[in-house]
Design a protein around this nucleic acid. Structure first.
Lengths: 146, 146
DNA sequence: GAATAATAGTTAGCCGTGCTAAGTATCTTC
DNA sequence: GAAGATACTTAGCACGGCTAACTATTATTC
């Protein structure tokens, strides 16, 4: 079971870097004025078009009652709007308002800009290396389990 | 202001990889039976020896009342113990019990094992690349701002 | 076609974690 | 030794997660 020390070291530092990266991103996201869960839900709503509550809850890995309240919050801030489904009176479809869409897209821009500026601090060779490492990790992190 | 598309792409994918990595880690951490904030506080207590409440709150970037409750929770589960300071009767020093230490260290082991097993899925060249990329990112992510 | 089962959402109510404001107890300082 | 600073706690609010239980619809089954 025990693995090489180098592997452990890389693993440990990878963990730490991931934490620090996301901490930075969270700070940037504060400018949207939205909490993490609301911002994340809004993102699904913006990119997945009109969505049902159940789909939204599943996408956010949250139970339906939790999503009910998140959407109520977004609705109260005028970022989101609901319409009944024409075929099935039980379902309620959620879509972003123009304001919701703008706030989300602006936040997304800030986030990518922040990360890009970090990467710009690297010389081109290192940047290329980060790119390839990200590709490797994508394969490995996405594939199995959840 | 607008940057090269490759930069944006790397930034975006880096973001996504970081999110997925931490999601995996959170799942592993569930085995400790502790919430994120409690686990994180316990980690500081274990590694920084007896600590004052104020130091703990600062380390966890949380206000003192929040730390009061986190420590009360850990104490109720027998993972942590408090002693008064001999020099200053206002301060209260927190230290881990043997059980607290064991739970934390076991969790830490599981976490590193999980990451290591991800890295093991890569061929040695890719692994080496990830290692170097992590070093680059460390420099860039740690340096400025908090 | 009426009864039953399944599905989509919501409401009610709990717990944990974040906060601020305000209190207590203990130093420190003048 | 009185005034102020410091360490921590208590009280009370908001929010996000959950389960259990409810309503309203749609689907099934006999």
């Amino acid at each position: 079971m025990s693995r090489s020390p180098e592997l452990h070291e890389t693993a440990d530092r990878l963990h730490s870097v991931a934490i620090h990266l996301l901490r930075r991103l969270r700070k940037v996201d504060e400018a949207t004025g939205l909490s993490g869960p609301r911002l994340s839900a809004l993102s699904v709503i913006v990119f997945a078009g009109p969505v049902t509550m159940t789909e939204l809850a599943a996408a956010e890995q949250v139970k339906p009652p939790t999503m009910t309240r998140l959407v109520q919050g977004l609705e109260a801030e005028g970022l989101v709007r609901r319409r009944g489904d024409s075929d099935d009176a039980r379902v309620s479809r959620v879509e972003a308002t123009p304001r919701g869409r703008r706030i989300l897209l602006d936040g997304r821009t800030r986030r990518v800009e922040m990360l890009s500026s970090l990467l710009e601090a690297l010389d081109p060779a290192a940047r290329e290396e980060v790119h390839r490492a990200v590709e490797s990790l994508e394969g490995v992190v996405r594939s199995p389990s959840n």
